[in-house]
Design a protein around this nucleic acid. Structure first.
Lengths: 199, 199
DNA sequence: TAGATTTGTTTAACGGTGTTAGATTATTTA
DNA sequence: TAAATAATCTAACACCGTTAAACAAATCTA
């Protein structure tokens, strides 16, 4: 009677295999050339089988987006825990965000690419919310005011995010640029904004 | 014998028609659903005829990118000419950049979308260079140093660009957000960076 | 164990994509 | 008017996401 569960586990396996295969293809050939048939090839099935596990291609992308947010959340949390001062925490967290973008380039492109899909579904994803809250909490603590208005915290977060995302995006299209220069820009910008944060 | 030129003019016309049709489709349905056949439909030809005017789809996108840079360049120049002080010029230019992104959303997405094509060909496009120089010139003037190193000017430009681009990108995916808040963030960020520029 | 039922998987197809080669029509030239 | 050239289309190729139907394999039922 345990065979039910064994089979359930096997099914769960191919679900994971699909996601892994997709990511592997993207790493090799980019998002543009990810196709259902290629995924099927890689897991040694035919294409329609994928629809037993995901409702469509977007379903796969959405799941990978979730994976990305989970990884990002972990790495940001880890970076935070390396420091005790709030402003140092904040800086470390954004640097972790930056590193994530280049260490997991494919995830980042999927999660924050301009053209990208979803948007509505992404909003109602708890993993997204979680990452945002991680930043919100620390920003709130860095700010001098006792009970800063939620509005202002949100604005600060957006300002940060914009700067980092802009840096990353521009560095991704003009890729192969001077890495040292970028690190310099990043630290410069962070310092400037963190100082500027408690006005 | 003037008929040669008349025909040449007609050919030039359909070239323009192709580009116009493409842009119109994108405005109606987005970049995702732009197809050669739809363009052909709109100009009342069949698809293969387009290849008489452009080597492939990417050729069309590249030409539209160029158009975009020309418009952007004009609007930035116009904004600059409205002011005499250098720092005011710089602020106006970036606001013009911001406005371009939302006034010509499609162009902006094509020119600066993360996933996007080209990159190599875009580098060797004089129109791109021109826009960059417009900013470089003014940044150089705003800086206090007599002859600032080219390196530093470049870094400043990238910092600016990153911030604005990030703001725009994030505002485009989360579109329909509070416009007033964004204007506030934009002006805030600009003021901060312009002050910070002559360190 | 034989038959019925469910499950897993594939084949074949639809309508779409970018692109090319070849046939066809229209226009210009001699 | 006949030949040559230019303009345009038809048909096809190879790919894409997706679905319906057919098939095979395992499971359940009597």
């Amino acid at each position: 009677m345990g065979s039910k569960e064994r089979i359930q586990r096997l099914k769960e396996d191919t679900r994971v295999n699909i996601l892994d295969a997709a990511l592997e293809i993207v790493k090799e050939e980019g998002w543009q050339s990810l196709s259902m048939r290629k995924i099927a090839d890689k897991i040694e099935y035919t294409a329609p089988i994928i629809y037993e596990y995901f409702s469509n291609k977007e379903g796969i992308l959405l799941e990978l987006t979730r994976q990305g947010y989970i990884i990002l959340g972990q790495e940001i949390k880890a970076a935070k825990n390396m420091h005790s001062k709030f402003d140092e925490q904040l800086e470390a967290m954004w640097i972790a965000y930056w590193n994530f973008a280049f260490l997991h380039r494919e995830y980042y492109q999927l999660m924050f690419g301009v053209d990208m899909i979803c948007c509505e579904q992404k909003k109602s994803m708890p993993e997204t919310e979680h990452v945002n809250n991680l930043f919100g909490d620390v920003i709130r603590k860095v700010m001098k005011a006792e009970h800063p208005e939620e509005d202002v915290v949100c604005r600060k977060f957006y300002t940060f995010w914009s700067i980092i995302h802009g840096l990353i995006a521009i560095n991704m299209v003009n890729r192969g640029r001077d890495e040292a220069m970028n690190q310099h820009i990043l630290k410069d910008a962070l310092k400037g904004i963190i100082k500027y944060i408690d006005e």
